[in-house]
């Protein structure tokens, strides 16, 4: 199949997708819309974490930390001064944050940028440690962020969090950013820079000996991954309408790690498919947390049961399907049409 044909197919499917978004945004029931928004955010988070963990091979557990930075930074910028005043009743918010209000889009960008700076700050010193240590250090970083958010009363409102956030997040914003994330990271990993990142994953010693600057490229992965995590956090904050320091804890990071592992380390397609699937599964499995009666035995609702089920799925995947659903494979038009033809034979 030639390039032009593929381009046309891509454009047509994009148009169809936008039409579907418009239909969903206009006619779907709010409950489904909410899941679809969460799905887009999971896609953003999964794909961006995959850049760090899957393509560059640096096992990071810091994603929730980057998300919280994005969520707080953007919320503090798009909230109206009046809303801030009602939120910060224990201790007023510091100037100039008390006065500033900028449009949602720019607030998101600033949130992403702040997360990216944090990505650099974590990534750079972490380069000396590898493997398991990196996981611990990045997890520690996310915890530190949480503690800081809890204690900066006059900037973050401390443990009270931010409430009544305006819901700017809709399907256009969330899926628009999801598509951009997919585009950006796909183009990146297919480029010369992407090959350098993958070479680090494959063999650091050899990569460096072939002239790949380890410091530059590992921080690059962290900065870009953190940027999109910050955007995802900003979108999620405005969708949930409430954020507090504990909204972004290790169990959120765990969910995103799960999306990446189940989809396949190094497969963007995998992260997209699993991001959407997990968003729906989380809702479908809600029933397991409500009280139920089995063979006359009444079990009270146990919150956290869903995570237990996911943990089980994850353990089974890691043991029996190490490469996840897609391994390192990616969706492509060639692949679709080839498999169609094979089926026809």
């Amino acid at each position: 199949m030639d390039r032009r044909m593929k381009l046309i197919l891509t454009i047509v499917s994009l148009l169809v997708f936008i039409l579907l978004l418009w239909l969903a945004e206009s006619y779907m029931d709010p409950f489904i819309k909410r899941i679809l928004n969460v799905a887009a955010i999971y896609v953003i988070l999964g794909v961006s974490l995959n850049l760090i963990n899957g393509f560059t091979g640096q096992f990071s557990l810091g994603h929730a930390g980057f998300m919280s930075l994005g969520a707080y930074a953007s919320a503090l910028l798009y909230m109206s001064p009046a809303l801030k005043a009602t939120n910060f009743f224990i201790e007023p918010i510091i100037w100039p944050l008390s006065e500033i209000q900028i449009p949602f889009f720019f607030a998101l960008l600033v949130g992403g940028a702040i997360a990216a700076v944090a990505g650099f700050a974590v990534g750079a010193p972490c380069l000396r440690v590898g493997g398991d240590y990196l996981a611990i250090v990045t997890y520690g970083f996310a915890e530190i962020i949480r503690v800081i958010l809890n204690n900066l009363q006059n900037i973050t409102n401390g443990p009270l969090g931010l409430k009544g956030l305006p819901t700017y997040t809709n399907l256009y914003w969330s899926w628009g950013w999801a598509l951009f994330t997919i585009f950006f990271i796909k183009k990146l990993v297919d480029s010369s820079y992407g090959r350098a990142l993958k070479s680090i994953r494959e063999d650091e010693v050899a990569a460096e000996a072939m002239g790949v600057n380890l410091f530059k490229h590992k921080t690059l992965a962290f900065v870009i991954g953190a940027f999109f995590a910050g955007i995802g956090g900003g979108l999620l904050g405005s969708l949930l309408m409430t954020i507090d320091p504990n909204s972004f804890n290790i169990s959120l990071t765990f969910q995103i790690v799960m999306i990446v592992l189940l989809g396949g380390l190094g497969s963007i397609t995998g992260s997209v498919v699993m991001g959407v699937s997990i968003a729906f599964l989380m809702e479908l499995l809600r029933f397991v947390e409500s009280p139920m009666t089995i063979f006359g035995l009444t079990i009270p609702g146990i919150s956290g049961m869903r995570m237990l089920i996911f943990a089980l799925i994850l353990v089974i995947t890691v043991i029996f399907f190490r490469r996840g659903l897609f391994g390192q494979k990616e969706f492509s038009w060639d692949w679709i049409f080839r498999s169609k033809r094979r089926n026809a034979e």
Partner: peptide, 11 residues
Amino acid sequence: TFQNIRLFGEL
């Protein structure tokens, strides 16, 4: 080159 080959195996 390396004594115990160090290619990027999955590339």
